[in-house]
Structures are given as C-alpha cells and as structure tokens.
Design a protein around this nucleic acid. Structure first.
Lengths: 234, 234
DNA sequence: CTTGGTATCATTGTATACAATGATACCAAG
DNA sequence: CTTGGTATCATTGTATACAATGATACCAAG
C-alpha cells in the first residue's frame, strides 16, 4: 500500500542513470555546458565511464525538464535558461511562494516552526561570517521546508523545480552580506506570520520576499552570470 | 543559429519513444492505468510491438513528470493525480492564468485577438449544438494560445502541463451546455480586456475564470472521475 | 502448522550490436 | 571557381544479450 505516494525530489541518486542525470543537470545549470552546445551521447558516456544507455535516458529526462532540446536523429542541445526566463521565474515564484505561505499558515506544526527558526538562526550566523555557501544551502533548506509544509505535492514539485533552476543566479546574489542578511530578515518575518497563523500576512510577505529579490537582481548583469553575451567560437 | 529556442510541447511524436511516451501518458491521464498499478517494461513493450528500450526511456520521462514512480530495481508504478492535486492545480492556475493574461495584455497583436475571437465564436457554436468534444478541443486551443501570447516560455511550459494534467476532469465538467457556455462567456470577457490592453482587468478576469471552475468542480465527485473509489470494469 | 532458508524465476539495469539517419569530404562537370 | 552528386563517416535509434536484483515457491526443521 501507499508505496507510491512519496514524490521523489529528483531521480534516484544511486543508479548509474541517476548519477549521470544529476551530473549533466548540474553541468548545465552551473554553466559548464554552454547554451546551444551539442551533447554527444558517446562523448558523455566515455567521459563518465558508462555506456550510452544511461546517458540517453538522462538526456531524455532533461529534455522533458526543458534543459535540453533533442532533435530526432540529430542530437541533443543544451537549452539552459535565459535572463528572461530568470525574471519570469521570479515573477511566477512571487505568486506561488505567496500561495505556499498561505497554505503553510494553517498547516504548520510547532516542530516545523522550530525547524524554520533553527535554519534562520544558523543562516544569520553564517551570513555574519560571510560563509556564503552555507547561506545558500540554508536558503535551499528554508524554501524546501516551506514547500513541504504547504501540504501540496504539486506546489512543492513546481516550486522546487523553479527554485533549483535559478540556483546559479541565487549563488551570486546571495553572496553579499547585506542581501544575505536582508533575505534572512524577510524569512524571519514570514515565520512570525506563520506563528500567528496569519495567512494573509504570510502570503503578502512571501510575495514581497520574491519581489525584493527581483529588485535586487537588477543590480546584476544576469546575462553575464548565465554566460549569454559573448560567444566562444563554434 | 537559434535552432534550440523552440520549446517543444512534448516529446517528438514520430519516434518510437515519442509514440510510446504519449501512449502511456494518455493511458495514465485517461485512467486506463489505475493509480498504484505496476507498469512492466516487457509487458508494455510486447503490447506495443517494440523493444524495452523505448519503453524504459518513456517511463523515465514520465517519472520526471510525476506520473510514474520508479523504485530502482523493483518497478514502475502509476502515480496518476489525486483529487487534492486537481484542486491544488486549479488554485495554482488561478494565479498563473492571471499572470498570463496580464502579460498577454501588453503583447497581444491584432491577429492574435482575431484568432482568440474565432475560437470563442466556434466554441459557442459547438456548445449550442452540444458537441462537447469540439468544445474541449477549443478550450485547449484558447488556453494554449493565451499561454503563447504571454511571451514567456517558462509560463507557457508550466501552465500547459497543468492544463493537460486536469484534462480528464475538464472533459467531464465541460460536458454540460450551461458550463460550456459560461466558460466561453468568461473567455470572451478576457479577450475584451485584452483588446483594451487593460492588464489589471485581464488578470482579474482570468483569475476569476479559474475560481469559477473550482466552484463548479464542487458539483462533482472528483474522486469518482479519477477512479479512486469504485472501480469500473473496462 | 509455523518459521526460516534456499533455489528458482521474473524483472530491471547496463552494455553492446546493428540499422537508420544525417553531415561531411571529395570529385567531376560545367 | 562553383555546383551538384556520391561515398564515407559519425551519430543516433532500437533491439537484444547478459548481469544484478528482488520476489516467490518450496522444503526442512521444530
């Protein structure tokens, strides 16, 4: 019974296919594979020391995620995401993070509130010390936990995807002490609203949290982060 | 260049894998494969007259879509969607269809307005005649076109997925003349707002369109539509 | 009859073979 | 030099072979 009701974050990490999938995905999101680049099955397979089969399966999955474009009988090409995509994602997230916070307000348990506060507390510590990797990691945790608390697998799934998609951008924007602290402060306010079970306020704050992020984004040349502008010869 | 910037709706329809993928997906969404059912590679392969390879690739893709749960070394199980998922999707769509209409308001061209009006006009005709298959088809077209007009690949992608996910439910709810006409009327109002380039109004109306659908949903036993409770032999 | 262990079988995971397709290099004709 | 065609090669698409894993049936011990 019910062994099918656990939505897995991403593919199984222990099979070859799972490892190949995660590896290629990371390489796209981190920018190692450039937009438009062709991904040859044999090349990737030999590089990772596996056969073409797991590579093919991984590429097919990435196609569905929109990170890869497969032209039949021709090849697989990196799609990556554009700066427009990033902006759109933050707009969409603004609405959905709001909905998430709204739902979470009526479902959150005391234990979960504790967990959220612990994350915030730790994040503050690391932000002060400028341990930006940990800050990013804790930001992930905060949002993933919020998604989980919302009680909606669908919402969790879509928000989790979007959150992951913009990781490269977040990696940059979270790497300044001021923004890290500000972001953390915003998280804290959201949790306060959850404590009061104030759904309207929680929604508005989560909403605003994303809008602030968008505002902050305008300080950066997103195209450069994504490696769009200049082109290497090909 | 730029041959990689066309986001494909779903996998290529002409390869074996594409056909297998679409077939299994339809069978899950239409309810032929029941929730929790095990999908054996060899059985599906021989049924469709292909080898295991395309079946495996299709199952891996469906896993990523959340329609199938794969337990490594064990098997693939149908996840389907629950009635809670359906409700969540409509809530999410309410927000995102609103955003979509807002963006569309500033981008829509005269040709696109014509297209939208043609769809509505045809839909009215078929609704009057109670040709519900055509009504559903035109509803698909209307929304897909709206998604496209929004100018956001990301938004188009996610809304298109959600829209497709609830097709089985829509198939039922759109099959009454009154709701079909009402829905069409709502579409008409949205288009009027687009004509006036009134983004606020378009958003509010699209928003409301989904909320009305949710209200309408409560007249149905969604669990039955999804085949959760009782079993129909077929 | 119940429990626990082993052999057997079904099924998935991965690698590889072969077919089909598309890209490229080369050559001949003008 | 340019154009068009063909042979060759690289790459993907699909099927299949074999290994690894998990499920099941059966049997022996108590």
């Amino acid at each position: 019974m019910g062994n099918y009701d656990v939505q897995k974050e991403v593919t199984d990490k222990y099979s070859l296919r799972g490892r190949v999938f995660n590896r290629i995905r990371e390489d796209i999101l981190s920018g190692k594979f450039k937009r438009g680049e062709e991904l040859k099955e044999t090349a990737i397979a030999s590089e990772l020391g596996v056969s073409r089969t797991p590579v093919r399966e991984a590429l097919r999955q990435l196609e569905l995620e929109g990170l890869v474009n497969i032209i039949p009988n021709k090849g697989a090409y990196v799609m990556g995401i554009t700066s427009k995509d990033v902006k759109d994602i933050y707009q969409i997230r603004s609405l959905l993070e709001g909905l998430c916070a709204r739902w979470a307000a009526s479902l959150v348990t005391d234990e979960q509130l504790d967990e959220l506060e612990e994350i915030i507390y730790l994040s503050e510590f690391h932000a002060e010390k400028e341990h930006f990797d940990q800050v990013l990691e804790l930001d992930n945790k905060f949002h993933e936990l919020m998604y989980n608390i919302s009680g909606s697998q669908i919402l969790e799934h879509v928000l989790s995807d979007f959150h992951h998609y913009v990781q490269r951008v977040r990696k940059i924007t979270m790497a300044t002490k001021s923004r890290a602290l500000k972001s953390n402060e915003e998280h804290k306010q959201i949790v306060e609203a959850l404590k009061l079970k104030d759904a309207d306020k929680a929604e508005a704050l989560a909403n605003q949290h994303m809008m602030n992020t968008i505002k902050n984004l305008s300080n950066y040349a997103i195209d450069d982060i994504l490696g769009q502008g200049s082109e290497s010869g090909n």
